[in-house]
Amino acid sequence: MEWFRFALSAALTLFGLFVLVSAVLGVFRFRYALSRIHAAALVDTLGILTMLCGLMVAQGFSDATWKMLAVVGFLWLTSPVASHLIGRLEVTVNDDLAEDMAVADPALVREEKESED
């Protein structure tokens, strides 16, 4: 039983490490910031889920397990908002956006940059 628990936890942790390494690799290899957001979001969702699930399996049921579930829940709530805000920042600040990628709706980009709210 002990070894089964260890095998499960090790499988989850090693998969989580693979996800983390691919995310960092993606952040290095992609060329534009908007693509790097996709790579970075791997860490916040799948990476932390598998790593913390591996830790929870290793610990059994204790106070720390529920707290780790709360950490994962909080991160899942806030990480998409953070990515959205970073995307908005990139669209507003970057002046060469149209040269790097195909902009589907230039009017929206202009409105983002110039709205006087």
Binding site: F74, L77, T78, V81, H84, L85, T92, D117
Partner: peptide
């Protein structure tokens, strides 16, 4: 500064009390 985002407001309604 830009006006506040609606997505941020909806999430903050849950997060700030927590």
């Amino acid at each position: 500064e830009p006006h506040s985002d609606i997505i941020l407001q909806k999430i903050s309604m849950v997060l700030v009390p927590l």
